[in-house]
Design a protein around this nucleic acid. Structure first.
Lengths: 335, 335
DNA sequence: TTGTAGGCGTTATCAA
DNA sequence: TTGATAACGCCTACAA
């Protein structure tokens, strides 16, 4: 198996303590340094994190928990999180709780039993109390994407309200008065925020919101499709639709294509999240772009600063800006 | 922090050794059993896996390595893998190597330093020798989706050749003689296999393969789109197209919609992997369905049987069957 | 700068 | 059935 510090000590003739010290950045005589480096290379020494963790009470492991591994928004973020954590010597245990609060609780318990040093997660609203108890155990938690009032922890969000506001505003400016919105599940934070921006834009421009135009889906391809079909079938269908995540945007586009709706002539469309998609589709799609890379990196950094005790202050909220890309999929409505 | 065995011993008046034995399934007097259960509950005892791992030389952790966290085929599989492993007390460290062999090597090294008990991975061809050296260290490795000749380990595959064969056969039977295929990268195992099935079907029905109809993409949405556009632009375009993964199927559909191609009247289409997608699209899409759940579960089981020493035999190959769903997107060509 | 020695929480051996 | 004790590999006073 792998060589231990003891082996290095034997090889170099130094003591275990000296070797350990060197490995942890301590000073040794130049000649010993050379010798140690040689031994480490020759014996292919790798620190045993379990032994170290037992002693230091740090596992150098963080838990990552998301609602679904089949949602590219989340997986894209954790891909970046994982990368940064790994660069800092942390390994990450990734769990998905399949949108099931019960499973979330269970896996959270598992993470605790694994003595993770910290947790980055997209929380489900039902477990606030339990998560708060984790925080109170002294395990730093960072929320991504969603905010839970009752938990005192760092949060990395995007400015959902203004993301929606800006998107919807562009539609209103172009004369649209009946704007459909395809939301996520009604109890999810991002759903509420994105809807709020939609409503606020309407208010500011004195356009009445028709609740029939507000559709709740499940943030998956299927609901995007069905909600759009539903909107089309209305007696008085919207002249523009705003879809609030990537998967539903895909579904909506499929519905539009199937029904032979001409975008933007018959309907303006603003989608979400995937910039490649936006480029591919014809006419090119206007979209709200969330900075997945930045979100992931920010979350990782926030957690790392907690783990390193660089940040011991109160909970922080990072609110990243989205970008609105206006392309060909929207146009002014003919009065 | 969490209670230790020592605490349990103190609480019950028993010795550390007895407590440890009980926790690991040993026998104790009935009255002590009651006492111990009480103590465990009251003190909220959780085993310290680091200490245990140090002693037993097992980390109860497995590494999972995939090329991309943005490919739903992989993430769907590992979601199932992770679930089963967790049920068996294992935590999984998930890494994506972003299709970069160098990064794969690096992360593999990281997993080793974390003393994972086993590895489940979608391998990249360039690291065969290194992976083989891992196997020789006695760490069980299970390949998913791709096969590497030079590595002696268990593999869980789908029957790609016949999956393609059956799909293409259906097209040929319907009179198609110019069938486009949108493949993945040419150096990837699944690409070769799926192409082989395509070629074999042509051979068996004495239909000539036109190499111009064989397009290599990158298994992402964008390439699906571009390859299909490319096929359309040919002087003598195909009357049917077979797309060999989910993301490219998405892209192809978008291209078709954009160009206003009528499926199946102007072109027959067979896609890949996502059954929901198949239902959503109109006309309903014919697809090759891979059993993601079974793949994940099988891989997990194979690894577990190695970890438990239930299986100490030579490398096994599990080849799971795909399903071909014929829907409305294909029709006979008018002679 | 280097070394000695004790202990982190667990398992496992060997007596009792 | 139970208990005392020596590891596992590492870190860390404390001493030299």
């Amino acid at each position: 198996m792998g060589a231990t510090i003891k082996d290095i000590a034997k090889y170099t003739g130094l003591s275990i303590a000296t070797v350990s010290k060197y490995i942890n950045g301590g000073n040794v005589l130049e000649k010993n340094k050379v010798l140690l480096d040689e031994a480490i290379k020759v014996l292919d020494f790798k620190i045993n994190e379990m032994a170290r963790g037992l002693k230091t009470n740090r596992s150098m492991t963080v838990g990552i928990m998301i609602p679904s591994l089949e949602n590219i928004f989340f997986t894209s973020i954790i891909s970046n999180v994982e990368n940064i954590l790994l660069q800092n010597g942390y390994s990450s245990i990734i769990c998905d709780y399949r949108e099931d609060p019960h499973l979330e609780r269970e896996k959270l318990d598992f993470l605790l039993s694994r003595k993770v040093d910290g947790i980055i997660m997209v929380p489900h609203s039902n477990n606030a109390a339990f998560i708060q108890s984790v925080v109170e155990k002294g395990i730093p938690v960072v929320f991504i994407d969603r905010y839970l009032e009752d938990v005192q922890c760092d949060v990395v969000l995007v400015d959902n309200i203004n993301a929606s506001y800006n998107a919807v505003e562009q539609l209103i400016i172009r004369g649209h008065k009946r704007i459909g919105i395809i939301c996520g599940p009604s109890n999810i934070y991002t759903t509420k925020e994105r809807l709020k921006g939609y409503v606020r834009a309407h208010e500011d421009y004195a356009v009445k919101v028709d609740n029939d135009l507000v559709q709740y889906g499940k943030y998956d391809v299927e609901s995007g499709y069905h909600m759009l079909i539903h909107l089309l079938k209305m007696e008085n269908p919207p002249t523009a639709v705003y879809v609030t995540n990537y998967e539903m945007t895909l579904g909506a586009i499929m519905a539009i294509n199937e029904k032979g709706i001409k975008v933007p002539d018959q309907m303006s469309l603003i989608g979400f999240d995937n910039i490649q998609l936006a480029k591919i589709v014809k006419p090119s799609l206007s979209i709200v772009v969330q900075p997945m890379k930045e979100i992931g990196e920010k979350a990782a950094q926030v957690l790392l600063s907690r783990l390193n005790k660089e940040n011991t202050g109160g909970p922080s909220i990072s609110r990243l800006k989205t970008e609105l890309l206006i392309r060909e999929s929207i146009k002014s409505v003919q009065a």
